[in-house]
Amino acid sequence: MADDISLDIPADLLIPGSGSGPGLVLFQEIFGVTGYVRSRAQDLVDLGYVVLIPHFYGRLGDPAVDEDEGGLPRAMALLQELDWQVAVEDGVAALGALREHPAVSGRVGALGFCFGGGLAFNVAAAADQKPDALVNYYGSALPSLLALAPEVTSPSLHHFGESDTYISMETVREIEHAVTDGHSDVTFLTYPEAGHAFDNPSPLFHHAEASAEAWTATVEWLATHLPVR
């Protein structure tokens, strides 16, 4: 646990070997803070980022659902139990707390997958001090959050699969229009044949080519917008 981060929910703080770096708040998938989420956090730490993983299900007993054991219905039920506005407030608090941490040198960004992509987007709209960079992987709540797009002024990178059965390509294009309209620093990428949650290594979701391509794009984009000195 992040004993030196003051939040109302549990959180994990990972610090790179250098002892300092830019900060990233990592927003979990719908399944909770799973091994996959932790592995992506470690990937970011290995790049030199200080990573904070808030446990947004912390108020619900902090469950992590197994993606490979028919866990989607349970995860959907957890999402129904979650108080979205409280989760947004927790995300805003996490950004602020990470900015104040002594290991953070430079700026602080937000990166989220699925449920976390939408939550990170909402947090970027709600925060008084905006994240310095925002990465959204197929944010499942974005279709219902597009009215907030004018408030999301952070440079942003968005990834969507073109074969996503949860978010149609028509909706993806609506999202693209909303997040790019009036914003100069937005990168919007789509991946043929990739479905929802294509970065998740579970056989239920994984698309190896799209996952690798999107992660390379993310690393390169972060190097420009949230550089490790």
Rank of each mutant, 00 (worst) to 15 (best):
Leu119Glu: 07
Leu189Cys: 14
Val33Leu: 15
Pro192Val: 03
Asn200Pro: 12
Val135Leu: 11
Ala214Asn: 01
Gly58Pro: 13
His101Ile: 08
Ile5His: 05
Ser211Asn: 12
Phe205Arg: 10
Leu60Asp: 09
Asp66Gly: 12
Asp8Tyr: 00
Phe160Pro: 00
Thr187Ser: 15
Gly48Ala: 06
Ser211Thr: 04
His159Asn: 09
Ser163Asn: 14
Gly70Asp: 11
Glu162His: 04
Leu134Asn: 07
Glu170Met: 04
Asp128Phe: 00
Phe198Ser: 11
Leu47Asp: 12
His183Cys: 04
Thr218Ser: 13
Ala217Gly: 03
Leu13Glu: 08
Leu119Trp: 01
Arg107Gln: 14
Gly61Val: 03
Val51Asn: 10
Met169Phe: 09
Asp132Thr: 02
Leu13Tyr: 01
Ala210Cys: 09
Met1Cys: 04
Asp132Cys: 07
Val50Glu: 09
His183Gly: 07
Arg40Ala: 04
Val65Thr: 08
Val172Pro: 00
Ala64Ile: 03
His225Asn: 15
Lys130Cys: 05
Lys130Tyr: 04
Val86Cys: 07
Glu29Gly: 09
Gly116Tyr: 00
Thr180Cys: 13
Phe188Asn: 00
Ser39Gly: 10
Arg107Ser: 14
Pro63Tyr: 08
Ser39Ala: 15
Ala149Gln: 05
Thr34Glu: 13
Leu111Ala: 12
Trp84Leu: 13
Ala125Lys: 03
Cys114Ser: 15
Val219Thr: 15
Val219Phe: 01
Ala126Trp: 02
Leu26Asp: 09
Ala103Ser: 14
Gly71Met: 08
Val86Trp: 04
Tyr138Trp: 05
Glu170Pro: 01
Pro143Lys: 01
Leu78Thr: 05
Glu89Ala: 14
Pro227Ser: 12
